[in-house]
């Protein structure tokens, strides 16, 4: 108590009393992602406990548990990659409703017979270029055409699905490329390739957001666009780049999904936009922009894929699953609002 008192009475121009005293790990900066995502980690633990209680015979088998963890992570991989891109867009003050549709276009374009004739590199190149270009179109419409992000990407969602159906002739396009098809079944040192890809994208996204000028601009543009503009940041160009980044993530996800299904079709990645937005939001990203974390978004994705898995191992219907998902989104946002409110009250003066 008295210690607390003297601390606040230190004159303002004295050296900042930060990190002079040894603090516990819990209060350190390194633990910040854990503290911030406490609610989601709690939800994950509860889900695992429910799984163990409802199917004790499965959870008793260590190799089944290991396999099941990989299954959950593989299921989280493509949507996780999309969510990283989505998180950037939302932190930057926008929204991208077209991610599912972009994946469909990139998927079917990269699996046409013509594209497949260029081999593995041709297919990967096509998926990524298509994703980036559609993202660029989104960005240009929003930045220079001054369309509201919601409207621009809603239009793109509809149009890109149409384009995907047109390209594929509404047929499922089977991938005959074994290298692509093997991605989903390859393991490196026991870790599935898809999980490694997710890890690389998440790590890359974290570095990009927290350690680069691009990330700093993203936060500035989303947090206060006018301040960013008057500080000399080219907010229009940056907005274009954010949507292109989201498109890039969609291109990567298209390859992952094509590999998992060994085919692509116009209806693939249906409603991915909603899952990605929900995961980003329950991961602590502010829908109005300016604040958000990649790690939180990853936890959001993991919560959803764990729920799906929990229902699958219990042979329960997807209807109930969707109701639970909805409840979790609401609960997570409520918890975060409460946390943020108590924080801001701490800082607010008269």
């Amino acid at each position: 108590m008295t210690d607390q008192r003297t601390k606040t009475d230190v004159p303002a121009d004295a050296p900042a009393p930060v990190s002079l005293t040894k603090t516990s790990w819990w209060k350190s900066d390194g633990a910040e992602p854990v503290r911030r995502n406490l609610g989601l980690i709690g939800v994950l633990i509860v889900l695992v406990i429910i799984g163990a209680v409802t199917r004790p015979e499965l959870y008793g088998d260590a190799s089944w548990v290991t396999n099941n963890v990989w299954t959950i992570l593989q299921q989280a991989s493509a949507i996780g990659v999309v969510t990283v891109g989505m998180t950037f867009v939302i932190i930057g003050g926008g929204i991208d409703l077209s991610v599912g549709a972009i994946i469909a276009v990139a998927g079917v374009w990269s699996t046409t017979l013509a594209t497949q004739s260029y081999g593995t590199a041709g297919m990967i190149f096509t998926a990524i270029v298509v994703g980036v270009v559609v993202g660029l179109v989104n960005g240009v419409l929003i930045s220079y055409g001054r369309l509201v992000p919601f409207i621009a990407t809603l239009a793109m969602m509809v149009a890109a699905r149409g384009l995907a159906a047109q390209i594929s002739g509404k047929q499922t396009q089977v991938s005959a490329n074994s290298t692509i098809n093997d991605i989903a079944s390859t393991k490196i040192l026991g870790v599935p390739m898809l999980v490694i890809m997710l890890a690389v994208v998440v790590a890359g996204g974290w570095v990009l957001l927290n350690r680069t000028t691009f990330g700093r601009r993203t936060v500035a543009v989303g947090g206060n666009p006018e301040a960013a503009r008057l500080a000399g940041i080219n907010i229009r160009l940056h907005t274009v780049l954010l949507y292109a980044l989201s498109g890039l993530c969609c291109g990567i996800a298209a390859i992952m999904l094509t590999s998992q299904a060994t085919s692509a079709q116009a209806a693939m990645a249906n409603l991915y936009e909603l899952d990605a937005i929900a995961a980003a939001i329950i991961g602590g990203t502010l829908l109005s922009g300016g604040r958000g974390t990649i790690i939180g978004a990853l936890f959001g994705v993991l919560v959803f894929s764990t729920i799906t898995n929990l229902f699958a191992i219990n042979n329960l219907s997807t209807e109930v699953q969707n109701m639970v998902k909805g409840a979790i989104i609401v609960a997570a946002v409520l918890v975060q609002q409460f946390r943020y409110r108590s924080l801001s009250q701490l800082f607010s003066r008269t």
Partner: peptide
């Protein structure tokens, strides 16, 4: 600028 909070600052940063 004239309006510090809305035109110049990222208040939570």
């Amino acid at each position: 600028p004239e309006e510090r909070k809305s035109q110049a600052l990222l208040l939570d940063e």
